[in-house]
Amino acid sequence: MVEPKLQGDFADIEKRYKEEVAVTTWRPKLMLIGLVIWGVVDAALVIFFLVTVTTYVVQGQFDEVKTIGSIGQNAGLAHTMAVARLAQPILTNDARVLTHDTTTYDMYAVVENPNTEWYATFNYNFTAGQIITPVKEGNLMPGENRYLTALNVKADARPVGSKLVVNDVVWHRIDHHLIADVTAFLAVRNDFQVTDEVYAPDVVLETDTVGRSTFTLKNVTAYSYFSPVFTVLLKRGGVIIGINEVTLSQFVTGEARAISVHWFGDIPNSGTVEVVPMINYFDETVYTKPPSDVSVDPRDLIKSRQ
């Protein structure tokens, strides 16, 4: 049986009816689909946010640990460098005693400056039981060994337990902007030659028989010194058997000075001398005129630290 077709307004009414039925039927489904899509997108955004935050936190912790480690490493390196740049203490050897006679003795000790960037000025003396020698001034050039002495010490018996006491040490750091080569700076100022050495073990001095060393000391440097002090060692077989000091007045450049030193106590049959300058080459007052190769006060060439 064929259904009759609606004509005119009835056809339009039927069409709208079917459309409304379709909308009414699919609207819940479309809303559900929309909610599902919104939920998926929202979940994806939440997951993305969580992943981003987690990555930032974890990576940030690693970066922070690395940064802290780097800071600690740099601080340790800076501390190591700072310590390395500080002056190391003066090295001292045991004090020794040499006999003049039964009531007079000489004391000495070898000291060393282990620093190549610093020189030291200080006070020192010797002690042995109740014996306390007068305080003297001393200095040590960079990397140098020197002999500190107390001569003609009076005592009823040979001093026992003698000790060197070093106080009031002031370290002076070399400024390499002004002195590029410290070794060369010292070498041209510390050049003294010993020649014509003669040793005699049987020299009569008043009523005593003593040893005597005579030699010529030449100032080979280009500098003249006002009143330089030299330690004179008498050695036999490399062993120190006598020690003395000589102070020369106005020791000018190129001068050769004849020197005579007497030795007391146990007089050896033979011996050789070694002369050690005790000059502070950074002190302008040791020169009779300013050094020709330095246009400023040498004391301005260093930085001092107590």
Rank of each mutant, 00 (worst) to 15 (best):
residue 3 E to P: 15
residue 10 F to D: 15
residue 11 A to G: 00
residue 12 D to Q: 13
residue 13 I to V: 14
residue 29 K to Q: 06
residue 31 M to L: 12
residue 31 M to W: 03
residue 34 G to C: 11
residue 40 V to A: 14
residue 45 L to M: 12
residue 53 V to S: 00
residue 57 V to I: 15
residue 58 V to K: 11
residue 62 F to K: 15
residue 71 I to R: 11
residue 83 V to D: 09
residue 89 P to E: 09
residue 96 R to S: 11
residue 98 L to I: 10
residue 98 L to Q: 10
residue 100 H to R: 09
residue 104 T to S: 14
residue 105 Y to A: 03
residue 112 E to A: 13
residue 120 A to V: 02
residue 121 T to R: 15
residue 123 N to Q: 12
residue 124 Y to Q: 05
residue 130 Q to R: 08
residue 131 I to D: 00
residue 139 N to L: 09
residue 151 L to T: 05
residue 153 V to Y: 04
residue 157 A to F: 04
residue 166 V to C: 02
residue 167 N to G: 01
residue 169 V to I: 13
residue 174 I to D: 00
residue 174 I to C: 00
residue 176 H to Q: 13
residue 179 I to V: 15
residue 182 V to N: 05
residue 193 Q to N: 05
residue 196 D to T: 00
residue 202 D to V: 06
residue 202 D to N: 14
residue 204 V to Q: 10
residue 205 L to M: 06
residue 209 T to M: 13
residue 212 R to T: 02
residue 217 L to P: 03
residue 218 K to H: 04
residue 226 F to R: 08
residue 240 I to V: 15
residue 242 G to T: 08
residue 248 L to H: 06
residue 257 R to N: 13
residue 258 A to M: 08
residue 264 F to K: 09
residue 264 F to I: 05
residue 265 G to W: 02
residue 267 I to C: 08
residue 267 I to T: 09
residue 270 S to F: 06
residue 272 T to W: 02
residue 273 V to W: 01
residue 275 V to W: 08
residue 276 V to S: 01
residue 286 V to T: 10
residue 295 S to F: 05
residue 298 P to R: 03
residue 303 K to Q: 08
residue 306 Q to I: 04
